[in-house]
C-alpha cells in the first residue's frame, strides 16, 4: 500500500540552484540553525522565513550543483522541506539527499516550463513509493522516476546514520551470538 502525505505548498525555482545558495559559505562555520536562516537568501529572501514543515521544492535542471557540503541538504531538512522534485540533480547532492533522509524525485523531462507549470504556492500531495505528486488545485498528477530500491530503503530508515546504527546493532548481536 502506498501512502500519500497531507498537502504541502510548492516553492518553485529555476535551473542550477547551487549548494552555495543553499548553504552560503560565510555561515558554514556555524551550526545548522544559523545556516538555515540564510538558505537561498541570494535567490529568494522570503524562503527561509516563510517555508513551513511539509512544503516541497520544485526546481529545474541540476539542482544542488557545486560543493559536497551536505549542509545544503541539512538546511532543507531543518526547515521542514518534505521533498525536492527537480528535472535533474547534481550527482553529489543526490547521494547526500538520501544519506540525510531527504527524498529527491526526478521529474519527467517534459518540455513545459517552468517546472511543469506548477504555480508557486500550489498545494501538492506526495506519494513517495509511487514517485507521484498530486496537485489538487489543477487535478494534475506528476509521475516522477521511481526511486531505486536501495535508496528508498535508506530514506525510509531516515538516512544513512540510522541505517548504520541498525547494521552495527545487527553485527553486534551476531558476534555476541557466535562468541557467547
Amino acid at each position: 500500500m502506498s501512502t500519500t502525505d497531507a498537502p504541502g505548498r510548492c516553492w518553485v525555482f529555476g535551473d542550477d540552484i547551487n549548494t552555495d545558495y543553499l548553504a552560503p559559505g560565510k555561515y558554514m562555520k556555524y551550526g545548522i540553525d544559523a545556516i538555515a536562516q540564510h538558505c537561498l537568501e541570494d535567490v529568494e529572501p522570503r524562503f527561509a522565513r516563510e517555508v513551513r514543515a511539509g512544503d516541497l521544492i520544485i526546481a529545474g535542471r541540476n539542482f544542488g550543483a557545486g560543493s559536497s557540503r551536505e549542509q545544503a541538504v541539512e538546511v532543507l531538512r531543518h526547515l521542514g522541506v518534505r521533498c525536492v522534485v527537480a528535472r535533474s540533480f547534481a550527482g553529489l547532492f543526490y547521494r547526500n539527499g538520501f544519506n540525510l533522509g531527504l527524498p529527491l524525485l526526478q521529474g519527467p523531462a517534459a518540455t513545459e516550463a517552468p517546472a511543469w507549470g506548477i504555480a508557486p504556492g500550489a498545494p501538492a500531495c506526495l506519494d513517495l513509493e509511487q514517485a507521484r505528486l498530486q496537485l489538487p488545485d489543477t487535478q494534475q498528477a506528476l509521475q516522477c522516476q521511481p526511486i531505486p530500491p536501495h535508496l528508498l530503503a535508506l530514506v525510509t530508515d531516515g538516512g544513512l546514520v540510522p541505517h548504520l546504527r541498525k547494521r552495527i546493532a545487527r553485527e553486534r548481536l551476531h558476534s555476541a551470538a557466535s562468541n557467547p
Binding site: G66, S68, G159, V161
Partner: peptide
C-alpha cells in the same frame, strides 16, 4: 570534497562525497 575528482588525473577512480557518506566509509 566535490573537487576530489582531481585524483582522476592519476588514473585513480576518485570522487567527492558528503560527510554522512564519509561516515559510512569510515565505519
Amino acid at each position: 570534497d566535490s573537487h576530489s575528482c582531481t585524483g582522476g588525473a592519476f588514473g585513480a577512480y576518485m570522487f567527492g562525497i558528503g560527510a554522512t557518506e564519509m561516515l559510512g566509509v569510515a565505519v
